[in-house]
Nucleic acid binder design. Sequence first.
DNA 1: GTGGTCACTGAATCTTTAC
DNA 2: GGTAAAGATTCAGTGACCA
Lengths: 377, 377
Amino acid sequence: MSALRRPDGFSNAASGPNWLNTILKGDCVAAMNRLPDASVDIIFADPPYNLQLNGDLHRPDQSKVDAVDDAWDQFDSFEAYDAFTRAWLLAARRVLKPNGTIWVIGSYHNIFRVGAKLQDLGFWILNDIVWRKTNPMPNFRGRRFQNAHETMIWASRDEKAKGYTFNYEAMKAANEDVQMRSDWLFPICTGHERLKDDKGDKLHPTQKPEALLARIMLASSKPGDVVLDPFFGSGTTGAVAKRLGRHFVGIEREQNYIDAALERIEAVKPLGTAELTVLTGKRALPRVAFGSLVDTGLIKAGAMLWDAKRRWSARVRADGTLSIGDEAGSIHKMGAHVQGFDACNGWTFWHYERAGGLTPIDELRRIARLGMEKAGA
Amino acid sequence: MSALRRPDGFSNAASGPNWLNTILKGDCVAAMNRLPDASVDIIFADPPYNLQLNGDLHRPDQSKVDAVDDAWDQFDSFEAYDAFTRAWLLAARRVLKPNGTIWVIGSYHNIFRVGAKLQDLGFWILNDIVWRKTNPMPNFRGRRFQNAHETMIWASRDEKAKGYTFNYEAMKAANEDVQMRSDWLFPICTGHERLKDDKGDKLHPTQKPEALLARIMLASSKPGDVVLDPFFGSGTTGAVAKRLGRHFVGIEREQNYIDAALERIEAVKPLGTAELTVLTGKRALPRVAFGSLVDTGLIKAGAMLWDAKRRWSARVRADGTLSIGDEAGSIHKMGAHVQGFDACNGWTFWHYERAGGLTPIDELRRIARLGMEKAGA
DNA sequence: GTGGTCACTGAATCTTTAC
DNA sequence: GGTAAAGATTCAGTGACCA
């Protein structure tokens, strides 16, 4: 294992496998093949886009656009690009945990090929996410629409993997309490965040903004998770992972990018547990069994419950089930039963009498949780 | 040709081929195969998204694909969808004019496969456009991001086809005078625009908003162009085409959709010629040789020209070239020369003295064009 | 410090016509 | 077909420098 020095500041510096929080040098497929099966929680991949640029492009002021013409972005054909994509996706799939997810970013030049190959290999697309750029480069010749976005695909390892991490509440809380949409707005990476070389030019042609990676990790990983980036480049994934209390594994071929990324990551200060808790949003609320409400006396065995319009009623039994005539079952089952539905949230369907009106039993659950907090549970 | 009755209100009702402004009933590949080569200007296609093959899909040989519950595994399903996509894209490519363009809309379920196949068949992607929905359906389970957009691919027939229509200036003017971006914001189709069946339910599951089609046609077609929609459905393409002075050809298999679309299109009132006039830029104006300004006396041989800041000057020669010291050449060449650039627009770079100030020689070109108009040239 | 000007820059599949 | 010439074209920033 050609693990490089591990940057400072990781709590597990002395523990964990030797490839954790390091940058592996070399080809991404070969490097991934040296990692164990099912060893990473999420993968962020920013593969070559295969831009297929022709000649030079000049701005109206005659200055030349600094194009991405690096050798690593050159492919002979779509077939060659597809073969490359298939190879690294296969390697990535093996190292991904069964409930892990993968993110791939691209533009219209490559993203359709990547998406099709993801599906071919059995990955299951969860969302396509549009990164809308606040400040994209214009279309200088006025021959197309301004290319103002890039596309990310978020996919689970396979269709049956339902246990992937999605911090729904955290995303909602971060989005003014409405669901986070599939279109995200961020500036491109400029200013001081953009790494520069000795001459003051951009170090890497396609450095991604940290805000983008932060949202990805906050949405789809937990503190302590391992994030793999097979096209590590300037190390944005590693920097954000360290700040957010995740572990990273980077793979990169070029030594100058590795050096810059290590230095960058070492300078990152991890957030404290308290700050991370805030970012993670609402903690998962403790589950409350309806029966425990009976046990603790919040509601008494024998009490009557109604739906909001008093069309149906049920009696609370000592074991925490409801009975209606001869039938009995959980609050959910019985709510579904009377309505003729397959499913029902009994907490919001059933109500109890209080001060002459009806109150959802969810209120009792809330009270029960307050009691659990006080108890330090 | 199984052309149906042509809706009223088309100026060419008595002329044009018999398939113009009609809906062809049947399979889209078979129907397109009955149209002539290179006969349509743009194609808008909203193919089935459904990868479960529930009866909507046919193989290229017209045999029906078995429904979902059968032994078709995922890979076979994707293969069948790819074959279907390839078949209709090939047929579409033949009927598209050399400088025509195609729009395909889809979601993450199918758009990656469609995009890859477009590239495989030689189409050249110009943009991918994101339709951001103002009012998307929420994600009810809270297990993914709200799927708040759909993706459109805009492609020319092949890489070398540079003569496609793109009304850049009109799009820019419609967007607060900055160039139109690749992310568009529109509501989904609801309210009175949404066609209803006898029971008041939505007639078609995926009726697209007219605003979306309007932007597509205003951006990439001219009045009088022919717009083909091989998955016509409720006829949004036809309705918008008629309103915007374009011709349509629709293909649809289900008679109830055809009936509804015909009725809908007949009710549309076309806009007048004046309202349809498209803002054009300098590209559309007649060319003027600088020498002709000298010939007509708008500027005199021997006159001096300066750049806007009077850093450089040049002398007009009788043949319409400029001289600076020993060097001479066109207004463009000399403008580039003094600045050390490869290229320069001499019309806006060089200025002449008027009323004590400097005016671009482009003003003289404008005057010359006015004279050409009066002369009826 | 403040404000104004100017130079520079970003994953880019970026022209049209005449000869 | 190719080559050469004409001529059309940019948005949201950041940062340096100067008054």
